[in-house]
Design a protein around this nucleic acid. Structure first.
Lengths: 354, 354
DNA sequence: ATAAATTTGTGCGTATGTATC
DNA sequence: GGATACATACGCACAAATTTA
């Protein structure tokens, strides 16, 4: 059972979060709150003390208690937290660089951490960031296709007026999150279309099952194929635990056996494409001779491996900048719109006509 | 007239300041203090709340109130700042990953930022970190071969008891810094030796002039060559502004002309080696046919380019971990020793017998 | 300008809950 | 289980600062 003064504090936080108070407006007096909530004045004072600690209100003797969600920080540097799946791998360094480029131009300190795709780590990191009293957060949602156990924490962030910008994936159960995401469904269509246009009809897909991106890319794929008579699609789903390695995916071996009959595969990302290339090499299937491959992200791998991957390019740096700019706008008290960014096809050698 | 709870708090502060309490000793109980000072228990609690805010004591329900002076962590997460030359390029992601691996195991938030090799940015970042009240710093020194204009800031950090661990390079003018660095002079010797052993005698070197690493690697090189009769060395110095691009280095063109007479070159790092490879290709010189190349760091480039670079491997991840562990030890109030780590030769194709 | 009313700050007493030893 | 120590909660009284009449 939560103590009364905490419940009261939370109730007041929600009140403030509604935005009904403009900066500097007076909160109800201690006596009024005592009436309204049917608690003693001491309890009211304890609750308000919590809000004061968080810098949500200022008390002035003889005058009243005032909400102060304007200039959170007096003079010092702003503190922005960034939570992504990885920090140093894949396309994440580029995204981080974009964010850093914008933040370092302002008076901002950037705290970085990685969830490694685990919601328990997400929870821990969010708690730490709250502890470290960040002024804003950029978060890549973890396992966004599943129910998230940390929604409560995100709601608490809202109550505390700490703005959050989601990147790549967000949580459906949060109302009106500010996001910067890729057009994953459109990307799925684009990838499938790329193969269809070159005459491929029996197409496989390898998608991540536990995040929104995988599900949407698959949807896009299916919608493009369903518009084309005679086209077939066969999806292989994997989860975080088996990333990139087809042999360890459930049904991975069955998929690879049937791959001989397919003429093209859409891969969730370049990492999966590399794993697939490796597996196909073992089976004596050549790319793009026997099988064409399209993947997502245009990571550093894509240009280096043989054959070079035809892949949809993630804007990485620009993407990071967009997210950071939106967060700055939110922290400054101005609003921000969500953004859906388009993919660009980068053609290399992994796709050939059927 | 000062309120009672403040006087009481001050009295307790003085008590604690005498040093009569060892770390972890129990303070008198609330009831005892009530007796001793003749005030109500509420007043005692108010006083202790002030001490708790300052981190002087910790209250444990059912147990007691304990003094916790010394470099004790306050409630909530520790905040560690990391300042490196780059974040997302070259070997830095791996170093950062090592640091993050250690810090995320503790209750730490890591703030990352990059100087891009500019001391004015170093100054700005240090100021911001101080503003954000970090509890410790990991810093890669900027232009460590030159006089540093920010020494004053580092001294202020010391006064504030904020521990700093330097990585890769440090400042000579700071007394007894805790460092984790590579054995750059030994590395220089090792690189030169690698060429000498394969019969090379006329050897060039391309070194960065404005940091300690470049100067020491050159020294090592010279010392190895001077022990070998008939060996000659010719150094080309560059600065941050011209990184990697030999054509833009002063005397770069003259060096490339003479390169035809050389049989081996020691490069400051893989990036320089790539630039050199590019330049030599333009001149029609083949590696390792006409010229052998040894470089430093074993970055991702080294294994990918053609020919693969023979290079001294920087331990990156382990290096980052060592630095982070030392910082944690310092923050916990235990001391820490500096560490000089050795290089390991990774042989690829860029070196051949003369 | 002054007095009264309002609002937060300080201080005490008491009772009960809950964690620790 | 019992004793101890901190946590929560309520009630009251007065002080100090500010606003209002």
């Amino acid at each position: 059972m939560e103590p009364k003064y905490r419940s009261l504090a939370d109730a007041l936080r929600r009140d403030i979060a509604t935005g009904r108070f403009r900066d500097g407006d007076a909160l109800a007096t201690e006596a009024a709150l005592r009436e309204r909530f049917g608690v003693s004045r001491q309890t009211v004072r304890q609750a308000i003390a919590l809000l004061e600690e968080d810098g949500l209100v200022v008390r002035r003797q003889g005058s009243g208690t005032y909400v102060s969600h304007g200039p959170r920080r007096r003079t010092g540097a702003m503190h922005v937290g960034v939570i992504t799946t990885y920090i140093t791998d894949y396309i994440f360094p580029s995204i981080v660089r974009g964010i850093e480029g914008v933040l370092s131009g302002e008076n901002c300190v950037m705290s970085l951490s990685a969830t490694y795709n685990r919601t328990d780590r997400e929870r821990e990191l969010l708690t730490r960031m709250l502890d470290a009293s960040v002024d804003g957060l950029i978060v890549e949602g973890t396992k966004t296709a599943l129910e998230n156990p940390n929604i409560g924490l995100y709601e608490r962030l809202r109550e505390r007026n700490i703005p959050v910008v989601f990147i790549n994936g967000y949580y459906d159960s949060l109302s009106n999150p500010v996001c910067v995401v890729m057009d994953d469904e459109g990307g799925g269509r684009m990838a499938a279309q790329t193969l269809l246009e070159r005459g491929h009809r029996y197409i496989g897909g390898v998608f991540k099952a536990d995040d929104m991106q995988g599900v949407k890319r698959h949807q896009g794929c299916v919608s493009a194929l369903s518009a084309c008579p005679g086209a077939r699609c066969e999806a292989l789903w994997f989860t975080t635990e088996t990333r990139g390695d087809l042999w360890r995916m459930p049904d991975g071996q069955a998929f690879l056996r049937r791959a001989q009959a397919m003429s093209g595969v859409v891969c969730y990302n370049d990492e999966v494409a590399l794993g697939l290339l490796e597996s196909l090499r073992g089976l004596g299937l050549r790319v793009p001779g026997s099988l064409s491959i399209v993947s997502f992200d245009n990571s550093a791998y894509a240009g280096v491996c043989h054959p070079g991957l035809t892949t949809l390019a993630h804007p990485k740096d620009a993407f990071g900048r967009e997210a950071a700019e939106r967060l700055l706008s939110l922290m400054a008290g101005h609003g921000a719109q969500s953004l859906v960014m388009p993919w660009t096809l980068v053609e290399r050698e992994s796709v050939a006509p059927c």
